[in-house]
Design a protein around this nucleic acid. Sequence first.
DNA 1: TATTCGCAAGTTTTT
DNA 2: CTTGCGAATA
Length: 792
Amino acid sequence: MDGILSSLTDVQRQAVQHVDGPLLVLAGPGSGKTRVITHRVAHLLAQGVPDEQIVALTFTNKSAEEMCRRLEHLAPGRRVWVGTFHRFCARLLRQHAPLVGLRENFTIYDADDSRRMVRESIADANITLTHESPARIAAAIGWAKSDLVTAEAYRAESCNPLAALVERVYPRYCKRMLAANAVDFDDLLLYVELLLRDNPELRHLLDQRFRYIMVDEYQDTNLAQYTIVRALSIDYPNLAVTGDPDQSIYGWRGATIRNILDFEHDFPDVRVVRLEQNFRSTGRILRVADQLIANNRQRKEKALFTDNTLGHPVRVVVYPTGRQEAEAVAARIADDVAAGRRRPGDFAIFYRANSLSRSLERALKSVRLPYQIVRGLEFYQRKEIKDVLAYLQLANNPVNDVAFLRVVNTPPRHIGKKSIACLTRHARHEGLSLLDAARGGHRIDGLSARAAAAFARFAALVDQLGSVPHESVEEILGNVLHATDYCDWLEAAETEEDQQRLENIGELLTDAREFDETHFQDGGLEAFLEQTSLVADVDGWESETDRVTMMTLHAAKGLEFPVVFIVAVEQDMLPHKRSVDDPDRLEEERRLLFVGITRAREELHISATQQRTVGGHIVYSGASAFLLELPRDDIVVAGQLVRENADGSGEHSQDLDLDLDLDLEDQFAPDDGSFGDLEEFGWQTPARRRAGKRAGKRAGKRAGKRAAARKPLRTGLVTTAAELAGDVPSATACSPELFHQNMVVTHPEYGLGKIISIGGAGTKRTATVQFVGVAGPKQFCLAFSPLRPARG
DNA sequence: TATTCGCAAGTTTTT
DNA sequence: CTTGCGAATA
C-alpha cells in the first residue's frame, strides 16, 4: 500500500485516501484523474471493502477498459465492477425487467432501429410530417427521457409545434417498444430510475450492495444519471465523482453541467479536492488552453499549472483549401516519421465532424502513412452486420418487430411489400407480434397462399435458430449464416462490394469467437448482443498499433498524444453553425476545442482553411472566433487573421503576426505558389458575417460596403456578406434560421411581403408569407427559396 | 416480386 | 457527396 501512495502528489493522495462520505474531485486535464480513481479503488480494497461493494462508472467502454487494466496492476485478481453507465443500467434492468413491464431478454435498439420505431409511431398517430423529421422527434423523445419525463407525464407547452407532435408520438412509441420487448439507450437509464423510484425496498438493497460508487466524467451526466447515482447513495452516501466542468461536451445529449457545478450544494458534507497540476502538456500548450477557456462564463475557476517545459509555440496555420490542409498535415507527419523523429503512433488528428476525415484519409494514404480512423460504430451499422445481428436478436427476442421487418425478406424470399403490409395490419389488429402472425399466416384475409407459406417458412426458420443449444455465440452465428443462406446469397452476387461484405461477416465471426473466449459464461448470446449495441467509436481505438489516429474531438476526450493536429477550426465548423446563436452551446464548442488542445503532450498544430467543400458545396470559411482568443505569445501564426468588432463599429483590425514558419514555406511555396497569395486574401472572420446577419440593415450594409472596398478578394466572400445583408439579390438561399414571425421579406417575383407563420428547423423550416398585392399567402421552404429579409 | 435507375433529401457531436 | 426512397421496368 505504501508503494501505491508514494507515487502520488499530496493532493492526489487526499482524494485517494478519502473513504466514507461524498467526494468531489475537480480534475483539470492531464492531472492524473484516472490514476486517482484506480488508486482509490485499490485503497478501498486494501481497507477491507469487499469487491462487490465497489462500482466505477465511466462513459465509454474504452475508459472502462483502461481503468480495469490499471486496476489489475494495483489489485490483481480483484473483481470490482467497472463499466459504462449504460451497461450498468442494462445489467440492473435485466435483473428486474418485469418490474417495468419488460422481459429479461429485451433487445437494446440502436439509434437507427429506434428511429424506425418512431417512424411507425408517427404513422400510428396518423400524422403526416410537414416540417419536422422523425429524427428530430426521436431526439426530442430522448431529451425528455434524459430529463426523466415519461410518456404519461409529457405535456407540450403551447405554441411548440415539435412538442405537440412529441406529445402524440411519445406514448405510441413507448407502447410499441414495450410490445417489441425493446429499449433504446435512454430507456436504459429512465427505466432504472423508475425502478429505484417505485421500489423503495429494492432501492435500499441496491444502495447497500453498491456501497462505494464512483462516477468518472461527472460533468457529462444528465438528470437521469444523476438521479440514479443519487438514489443509490442515500443510506451509504459514499459517492465519489470526478470531472471537469471545462470538459463538459455532451450538453446536446442532455448532460447538464449543473450536476457538477451544484454537487457541493447537493451533498453538503462533500470533500472537495482540486487537481490542478498538469503532468501532460508543455507550458505553452497549457497556457493556450487556459486562455481559451477563460472566455467561458459557466465554470469553476481553476488555476492550471505545470512543471513541464515551456515547449514549442502552438502553430496556427491557414490554408487556402481543405485539400491543401489535409496534404500539409500528412506531409508534416511524413517528414517527422521519415526523419526518425517520431513514429506514426505519436500523431493524432482531431476534427469537429466525421465528414472531415475523408480528405485526411486520402492524404495519409497518398504518403503511405499507416492510420486508423476511430469510428468503430460504423462496423455495427453496416447492412450485412445489422442483418445478421437481426437474426440473432430475433432468435433471442421473437417479438422484436423491427428485426423481423429487417430480415423477413433478406435474403429475398418472395415476400413483397403488399404481403408485409397485410401481415402488419393483421398483427396489429390481433395484438400479435409479427413473427406470431407469420406463423399462422394461412388464416389472414387477403394474403395469398404463396405468401402465407413463405411467412410460415420464415417463422419456422427463426424458431429453429432459437432452438439451437447455446454452446457458443460463434456456433449460433454460424448456424444463422448457414440456415438463412445469407453467405450463399452474397457469394452469388460476386460484386466487389459483396466480397467486402463477406469479409465483414468473417470479422463478426472473429468477434464472436473472441467473445466466447472471454465473456461467454457471463450471459451467452444475450450478453453478446448487448455488447454489440453498447459499443461506441472510441472503443475501436487500438492504442498499441503504431498508426496515425484520426477521430472527432468528442471521441478524443480522455486520450493523449505527443503531437496533435486540430483541423478545420473555422466558424460554423468549430463553433458549429448549429451552436453559434446560443451562448450556452457556444461555450460548449469552446470546451470542445479546449478538450482537443489539452490532449497534446508536446506539439500542437491548429489549422483552418479559407475554402472547403462540405456536402458537395464549396463554402468560404472564416476563421473561428476562438482562434482570436488564443494568447499571441504562445502561438505562431501562418496566414492572416483580420478581425473586426462584432458590432460592426470601426475597422479595428487586429493583424496577427504574419510569421511564416519556414517549414511551411518550404512545403507549399514551390509547389503551388498558393501560399504566397494568402496575404492578399484578406481573410475574413465570421464576426463580420454575423454582424451582417444579425443587425441586418445597419451593420450589415456597412460591412458589405467596406468589404467591397477591400478589393483583392477573389473568392465569393464579400458577395456572401453582402448577400446576407440583403444588398444583392441572388439565387442562393439565406440561412433558414434567419427568418422569424412578422418579418418583412422580399421575393424576386412577388416583391414585398410579411411572414405570417413560420416553423420547423434546418432544411425543413417553412414560412407562410403574405405578399403586398398578391392574393393568398404563399408557402416557402426557406432553405431553398429566394426569399430574403427586406432592407430598411 | 425483384431489380435497377433516378431523384431528393440530409449532412455534429454518441451511449 | 452520400444515402435512402420511390417509381419504372424486367
